[in-house]
Amino acid sequence: MDGTETIAARPGADNAAARECLGAPDAVALRAIKLTAGYGNRAAVREVSIDVRRGELLAIVGPNGAGKSTLLRALSGALRPWSGTIELASRPLAEYDRRALARRMATVAQENPVAFRFTALEVVLMGRAPHLGAWRFESAHDLQIAREALARFDLTALAGRAIQELSGGERKRVFLARALAQEPEVALLDEPSAFLDLRHVAEIFGRFRELAATRAMAVAVTLHDLNAAALYADRVLLMKDGAAAGYGRPEEAMTAERLGAVYDTEVYVGRNPATGALAILPIGAPRRPAV
């Protein structure tokens, strides 16, 4: 056990101590430099360099098979990169032991299968595991954190339901609540909005924006929905064939020209008059407009 672990393990002191060792908001929490990773002998991510900063939401977008999920898996430590480095709080990821890593970084995968009939609350309480010893039962403090996480994702009424009985969207929110119960400094979310309806998409991004702001959490999400990326992300990484095709503020990363090249179809980029964010629409092969 090293010094950083004991700091992170003390509840309550989390925020202040974490901020102390990671620096102020906007400081880089997670950094990848020339990261290459893949499966078998196929590289799915090639020489990608990104920063995930505290207090911000970074969206990773791109077509199917662009390497978004692979990048996220490598960043989470589940997939060992072929080359390049990943640093969490300026320390190589490989130097952390799994439990220490789990106290600082939470990951929610695209699909969330559960083998047995655990209740929603039990799944969320599993987020407390990295903070607990092998033999200990959850304390009142852990339970409170889990219940708050459930409430934050509108799940309080479903706490006692078996996870298998929930809809795809409800289950996804349970896993997001579990990530929150980990009290991480960095959250990596793979397609968090995939099964959600409009209201819950808005709510989820609202929640994570709020967490970024109040807890200086660094959030990275992969997304298919370019408009959601434009609306909610502070910065965007646009990927194609495993490499970065654009990186920066939404306006910089997602120009009509870049998107056209990456998605191989004509794209309209304008402004949404209601929000002022980019509005991105495909143009290719339209229906003839009604006269």
Binding site: G77, M105, T107, N112, E122, G127, A129
Partner: peptide, 18 residues
């Protein structure tokens, strides 16, 4: 507890410190 976490899958269990 590790067996509980493994019910979520290898990757998820890894992410939770197993």
């Amino acid at each position: 507890r590790d067996l509980n976490l493994l019910s979520l899958g290898d990757d998820e269990a890894t992410h939770l410190g197993v």
